[in-house]
Design a protein around this nucleic acid. Structure first.
Lengths: 202, 202
DNA sequence: TTCATAAATCAACACAATGTTAATTACACG
DNA sequence: CGTGTAATTAACATTGTGTTGATTTATGAA
């Protein structure tokens, strides 16, 4: 972004980053303010304002850097391409790289995911699942070392539907409720790939 | 929840609710504080504290009520059950009810969705999509009045994968990255229903 | 090594919001 | 009607913000 030549600047920013992450670990996002942050970092409160507008500005810049790094990840392979080739139990390489990166940066992402899911969001996803998919065929029927754990299936379904509903809201609720319901129904019945191709199952 | 017998209490709470929703509409969630809220509601600042601990407490109680109402929705039908029966273009009734309810309460949900998706969450979902599913077969190939719009397919895929990754984080990153990648790969390749049943496609 | 320069510190400031309290007024309901 | 409770009012200490000006400290370059 900018010139960070001076060792003092580099040191200060590192102190701020570290203080931010550990402060969120301790007290959550609400417990973070400029006063406590600079206190934990061991720097003067005024110094923070030499580098960032406010806490929000700090987080934004941390996000910018992560996004930049993710965009720079090498493997850009396309599932479509890999769909035809690999039929083994090997995961797609691009996805592996992706997950590995998040694992390496887990301190940042832990903060992000903690703030991302509001408590109500979680309750709503749970509700979606319990009301609609509670009686899905469960893994207990066929225990298998290679099987995908139930909780991941649940996460997949509830987040997918949550996302469709959110998109409906974010696009201004232009579609009537019945059509949104139909979209969800088709995604459930036919699966996303078939739905995207607009074909009937079987 | 509690006794709200007194008309004064009912009136005050209605004023607070209304002020909260319209205040969020105007200035976003960050612009809401006790001072501005009570000012807009036309009540004394102290009165707010007679009913709620703080703004967070207010929101929590609003959420409680919505969740309660959603749990009380009549139709509790199971997709599994309906999967066998309906093969027409009719949406599942329970889903219709669900979406209709959210549409009726759209002022509340608009607030909720505005806060739910952090800007970074949106960026991450966009990134997931562009890196992994950009070259999925698009609707342009077969235009159809009944087709599910592209943007809804995108919302479905990106949210589903986002949800799986979030679940991985929320469950303490116990699985190694390679296994999470494999889970995602199988969900993409085989679809969620087949994956849940733990069978091979075809 | 020296030295100009930029970073960091320190103390003080006005301001805004919080949460609480005590005395008073208004009003809903029996 | 009159009684209890809700709501108002004004004041209070506290905490955090963002900024400013003077001063000290550390860095990178000559």
């Amino acid at each position: 972004m900018e010139k960070a030549a001076d060792l003092r600047v580099i040191r200060t920013k590192k102190l701020i980053d570290e203080a931010f992450l550990s402060l969120v670990d301790e007290k959550g996002l609400e417990g973070v303010n400029v006063r406590s942050l600079t206190s934990k970092a061991g720097i003067n409160r005024g110094t923070f304002y030499l580098h960032y507008q406010d806490i929000y500005d700090l987080m934004e810049k941390m996000e910018d850097q992560i996004i930049e790094e993710m965009n720079a990840l090498p493997a850009q392979s396309i599932p479509e391409q890999l769909l035809g080739s690999g039929s083994t139990e090997e995961p797609f390489p691009s996805i592996v790289e992706f997950i590995r990166f998040m694992n390496a940066r887990h301190r940042f992402f832990a903060v992000f995911f903690a703030q991302e899911g509001t408590s109500f969001g979680k309750r709503l996803r749970t509700l979606i699942h319990s009301r609609m998919y509670e009686k899905l065929p469960r893994q207990a029927m066929n225990p298998d070392a290679l099987a995908v754990p139930d909780d991941y299936i649940v996460a997949y379904f509830s987040s997918a539907h949550f996302g469709v509903i959110r998109h409906w809201f974010e696009s201004g609720r232009t579609l009537p409720p019945e059509q949104v319901a139909l979209i969800l129904t088709r995604l459930v019945r036919d699966g996303p790939l078939l739905t995207a191709l607009n074909r009937r199952p079987e």
